[in-house]
Write a protein that binds this DNA or RNA. Structure first.
Ligand code: FES
Ligand code: FES
Lengths: 146, 146
DNA sequence: CAAATAAAAGACAAATTTATCCTTTATACA
DNA sequence: TGTATAAAGGATAAATTTGTCTTTTATTTG
């Protein structure tokens, strides 16, 4: 569904929101420990999100990553499109060069419906909402004991 | 969503069903020309499907691939699981080592719902049904002019 | 200003997926 | 029976994704 990069990216932003009380910044090593992701690789993904103004960052002492109020309200789809692009929402389910209404593949109609459901879900879900779920202990960002 | 292998595999079986009138066999090169897929690679995917008894094959003169009546009635999910496994239907949307009801990730509930929709769709769609759509000219298996 | 800190960036490496080529095996049919 | 045919299978290669390591840049703080 999502690429590994995207999975790490989503987990990272959710962790940042859930962990940074009153504008505190969260370092990359703390993030990766808590979401069980490779540090340098995840750092690169956060660079993408920072360039796309989905997360904020600060270098130097007491630096780290954080989300401002506007960014917290962003929907998950912003994170996904920044990392994986929009192929998931526009591409053909059978890999035809382009999804088309006039020359559809055999599963076009059924696939389109699912594709739209995914899009809708990602549009309706905010980063903050998921962060709150973590804060409340209602969900986790890494599998506990293997 | 699906791997390239799976996309080729699905398109191949649909083409075979749509093209083999009265039990005729279809050769790999004909298949690949009509679904716009790499020949040797697709051949390997059809080997997997043949080993899993989702398609039938015959070596030698007048040999090729075909589906018997039972196979035509198989649902698309058989093709997908044979090639991509069942991760799409059981795995965590955020890539946690395992999807769990008791320790869910923040999007578990919403993702599970979509995952089930995909599964249901693939269970309810038969290969034959999609082949008929091609036969009737209602859909295509490759993008015409680029 | 100098030192310490942490993200940004670039280069490289491993792993996986996708793709190609060549040989072997089974089958039909002349 | 032997030859042509087409799938099966094995080995290899290219491309992409994922992961690691090192250097550079920006920022804070003393
Ligand atoms: S053409 Fe395949 S999903 Fe639209
Ligand atoms: S735990 Fe993530 S989808 Fe179930």
């Amino acid at each position: 569904m999502f690429s590994k990069s995207c999975e790490y990216g989503i987990r990272a932003v959710i962790y940042i929101v859930s962990a940074s009380k009153n504008g505190e910044r969260v370092g990359i090593s703390e993030i990766c420990q808590n979401i069980d992701a490779p540090e340098h690789f995840t750092a690169k993904i956060l660079q993408i999100l920072t360039r796309n103004r989905i997360v904020s960052s600060q270098k130097g002492v007491h630096g780290g990553f954080y989300l401002d109020d506007y960014q917290k309200g962003l929907a998950l789809i912003e994170v996904v499109t920044a990392i994986d692009g929009k192929t998931l929402f526009t591409g053909c389910g059978l890999g035809l060069k382009q999804c088309s209404e006039t020359n559809p593949c055999p599963i076009h109609s059924k696939f389109k419906s699912i594709r739209n459901d995914i899009k809708k879900m990602l549009e309706q879900t905010t980063i903050e909402e998921l962060g709150n779920s973590i804060k409340k202990g209602k969900s986790v960002l890494k599998t506990l004991k293997i």
